[in-house]
């Protein structure tokens, strides 16, 4: 089943009189349960593409279907709800709320969900999620008391708390040392294989991209090529 489908996506920024086309007709599709790496050098348009995939931005032209739903025409509130229920974000700099416990950080997206879980259930779900990511003993720690890897795990728990269809990771290992990076990437692979979560990893680093099952290379706003990798398995 096709989870998301992009057709001829264009994105142009207007800087005064100059038009800067960043995406020039990008088309691809991703199936449920894939682990895809979007790879490209800086300035290649991969961040813009990720913003569009994450429903943070809408394309200038083209079609974007997520779960069969056309996205480009949605209002900002509609996109917000979609982000809440379908998409989990993991950022390079973790973006955890400072001076807020890991548990509260993970619970945060639940307060914007449509279903409105009662406090007790929300807490239980967050605890389970943190357990799953091996942070059972770090629940009450604030981000400043956690290592980079632990912070990123909290961020991943937060991204997964609303059971999204896609996990969008933007350079998730950019601020981590190589050893911790490896840990996080292995965690992604595990989540992908064991939980069946679709993961899109945005990176400029081929070494990181090779952890994905499929690599989409993007350069200068167009898809340059695609590599199927067999390295996606848990080592």
């Amino acid at each position: 089943m096709q989870l998301l489908e992009l057709k001829d996506i264009w994105k142009t920024y207007y800087l005064g009189d100059i038009d800067v086309p960043v995406l020039k007709g990008v088309s691809f599709s991703i199936e449920q349960g894939e682990f895809v790496a979007l790879m490209g050098t800086s300035g290649s348009g991969k961040s813009t593409l990720m913003n569009i995939l994450g429903c943070l931005d809408h394309p200038t032209s083209g079609e974007y279907r997520l779960d069969g739903q056309e996205i480009s025409g949605l209002s900002s509130d509609g996109r917000a709800m979609l982000r809440n229920s379908r998409i989990g974000f993991v950022f390079q700099n973790f973006n955890l709320l400072p001076r807020t416990s890991a548990l509260d950080n993970v619970m945060m997206p639940l307060s914007y969900s449509v279903e409105h879980l009662p406090e007790r259930q929300a807490k239980q779900r967050s605890v389970e999620m943190l357990n799953l990511l091996g942070l059972a003993d770090r629940m009450d720690h604030e981000p400043s008391q956690l290592s980079g890897g632990q912070q990123q795990r909290v961020a991943i728990a937060r991204a997964l708390i609303n059971k999204p269809s896609i996990l969008l990771a933007d350079e998730p290992t950019g601020n981590l040392d190589s050893h911790t990076s490896e840990d996080i990437l292995r965690l992604f692979q595990q989540l992908n294989q064991q939980q069946g979560i679709t993961i899109i990893l945005v990176t400029h680093d081929a070494n990181i991209a090779k952890h994905a099952k499929r690599i989409i290379r993007i350069s200068d706003g167009i898809i340059e090529g695609e590599i199927k990798s067999d390295a996606g398995g848990v080592k």
Partner: peptide
């Protein structure tokens, strides 16, 4: 600002 961006990215609407 970053916190606001984060909250928006996890689904907070403008009115939230």
């Amino acid at each position: 600002t970053r916190e606001i961006g984060l909250r928006m990215s996890v689904g907070a609407r403008a009115r939230d």
